[in-house]
Amino acid sequence: MRRFSRGERWVHRGTAWLMIVCVVSAACLYVPQLAELVGRRALVVDVHKWSGLLLPLPFLLGLASRAFRADLRLLNRYGAHDRRWLSAVRRRDPRAKTRWAGKFNAGQKVFAAWVGGAVLVMLGTGLVMWRTDLFPLLWRTSSTFVHDWLALALGLVLLGHIGLALRDPEARRGMRTGSVDPGWAEREHPLWRR
């Protein structure tokens, strides 16, 4: 059965690739061993800046798709079942957890919103560090601080996102092909109104 439209899958694919380039170039600037291996600091900085700047582009293009806008609305709205899902996670109760998921469970909703906000913060602080001619230099130091620590948090959250995807082949198939097995949907997203 249908889960994601072609447009939505391209939004995910474009964002994922830009994110990978952004994270890998960041690691080459940041992890001493990688920095030593790669060198070329000015070039790596360029790659990082442009992949970061373009990161919101797939999302913005996706807004032209009706399906994408509809899913954004689902991600935005939290019902009573989402609170139950979250409290099931707090109680470490996996069986109650799956029962209270719509098309997106509350964890996916929180992830989407937080990553969206975090990417905007990275973009803002990144621009301050980039355009020192437009912003006072003290802002640059403060932005570097937030950019560094948020990068660490974002990296861990992305690892969690990838780890959960690796554990669920059917969820990956949904994002790759657009369709999922109805049994899986019934199990994992019982409140999804199809």
């Binding site: 509809a70 609305r73 689902l74 991600l75 935005n76 709205r77 939290y78 019902g79 009573a80 079942h81 989402d82 719509g102 098309k103 909703k109 929180v110 989407a112 919103a113 937080w114 969206g116 906000g117 905007l120 409140l191 999804w192 109104r193």
Partner: peptide, 14 residues
Amino acid sequence: QPEADGTPVGRRLV
């Protein structure tokens, strides 16, 4: 509730 209703918590989180 219908899935698309509810509180706009996502926007608040962003």
